[in-house]
Amino acid sequence: MDTAVGKVVSISLLVIFAVMPVLAPLVGEPYYVDVFARIMLWAMAALGLNLILGFGGMVSFGHAAYVGVGAYTVGILSHHGVSSGFLQWPLAIGLSGIFAAIFGAISLRTRGIYFIMITLAFSQMLYFLAVSLEQYGSNDGLLVPERSDFSIGTLHAGIDDDHAIYYVILCILVLCLYAKSRLIAGRFGMILKGIKSNETRLQALGVSTYRYRLAAFTLSGMICGLSGVLFANFEGFVSPDLMHWTRSGEVLIMVILGGAGMLFGPLFGATVFLLLSEVLARFTDYWNIIFGPILILVVLYAKGGIGGLFRGRNRG
C-alpha cells in the first residue's frame, strides 16, 4: 500500500481482526468470530495466489488444491493418531510445496488460457483423489479428532482453546504479510514484477525466468498449504469441498477484488467477499444475484480493486 491512507486502513483492519474475539460477544454476535477466522484463512490462501498472480502475472485457477493438500495432510495424520504439530505442519506445508512444484513445473511451460486450464485440471485431479479416498470419508469429509499438539516433553502447548487458534491464525497471517513484503521489496520481487511486464526482456538480460516462476509458484502453493493446515485445525473437519474448483475461483476473485499485486489486497478482498456474502445471505437465498453485479461494478470502476482506491496516482 503506497499511500498513508492505505497504510491506516490496512493497519485498522488488522486491529479489527485482533479485537474481534472480544468485540463480537459484547455486541451479541459471537458467531462473527468464526467468520473473521475464516476470512483470515482465505486471505492467507489469497495472499499465496497474489504472489504469483498479482506480482508475477500467472493466473492459477487451481490454488484451492494446495489448501486441500495442507488440510488433508493434517486430517489424515490426526485420524491415525499422529497429532504432533511439529510433524504435521512441516509435512503438510512440504507436501503442498511438492505438489505445487510438480504441477508448476508442467503448467508453467504453457501460457495464458492454457495455463489457466492446466492448473484447473491439476486441481480437479486432487479433488477427485480426495473424493475417492473412501477410507477418509470420501465426499462426506473427514473429522479431525484433535488439533495439532505442540507439547514438548511435559511442557504442554496446544491450540485447543478457540481464542488460541484465532490468535495463532492472526499471528501467522501477519507473519505471512511481513514475509511477503520483504520478499516483494527484494530482488525476487523485482524479477517477478519484471516477468509480469516483459518476460522476454528479462531473459535477454540473463535471467532464467522459468526458475523464478517455478520458485514463486511453489512458494505460493506452500502458503496455501499453510492456510489448509490452519483450516483443518480450526474447523476440525476437512472435505473435498475445500478443493472444489469454485473455491479456486473464489480465491481468484478475492485477489482481484482486493487488488492484485498489492500487499494487503488479499486481506481486503477476502474480508469484503466473505462479509458481503455473509450479510447478503441473511436477506435472501439468492444473494448471488446481488453479489455478482457488485463484483462487476468493482472490476469496472475500481481499477486495481479495493486496494487500488488507496493507491497513489503513480501505481504500477
Binding site: R187, M190, I191, K193, G194, K196, S197, N198, R201, L202, L205, G206, V207, G316
Partner: peptide, 13 residues
C-alpha cells in the same frame, strides 16, 4: 520495466 523504479530497473538483473 514500467512498474519498477529506476534503481530497481537497474539492480533487478
Amino acid at each position: 520495466f514500467p512498474s519498477l523504479n529506476v534503481v530497481e530497473n537497474l539492480i533487478a538483473t
